[in-house]
Design a protein around this nucleic acid. Sequence first.
DNA 1: GTACAGATTGAG
DNA 2: TCAATCTGTACT
Length: 208
Amino acid sequence: MMRRLKRSFFTQPSLWVAEALLGKYVVRKLGKKILVGKIVETEAYPGPYDSASHAYGMKRTPRNLAEYLKGGHVYIYLVYGMYWQLNIATGRAGFPECVLIRALEPFSDKRHATRDKDEKNFVSHVPLSISLNVANGPGKLCRWLKLDKSFYGEDVATSKRFWFEDRGAKIRQSEIATGPRVGIDYAGPYWAKKPWRFYIRNNPCVSR
DNA sequence: GTACAGATTGAG
DNA sequence: TCAATCTGTACT
């Protein structure tokens, strides 16, 4: 069972979307090739009152305009002059909130069946060609998925080259961990301490 | 026109 | 743990 996440998923509040995206899949169509990754880490930037947000105080700049679009639009921008950061606008149009996608577990539909050590039983495993380390950080996942400025404002509810799917996996509440968001100390202790980073406990692809 | 930060990364 | 990295942004 695979179903594309539709608009109504993304028009929910960012704190809900950030948690609900764990265990969902990112799908990127690159010509004939399709890259799929399970979302294992996100962060919520829930609104203009949050001083860690690029839209703090309803500030509008050419860069952050996509944050004001209705849920489902891509807000992508460059940090450190070299790394793209993938965010998805959430909530309603005109209110700036978004979710940062921080890490993916690369996924392969083709599970290889091979003999185990004793050569008695078959075991299923992800092909070695898929590295666990290609998308375990916000900059790396954009590099892997070949996402850049050309995706600015892309609508993942309708895009033919980039979207999200629910593949039926259920994440138990006990598997979800939270913590403070990364790299936003400038926002001051009150906002920096908010536990708005969500990740799947013990997953090898979570960043840091 | 330009100083400079920056939601990072990877090497040591 | 720490510094290299470099371009778009947001100022003057």
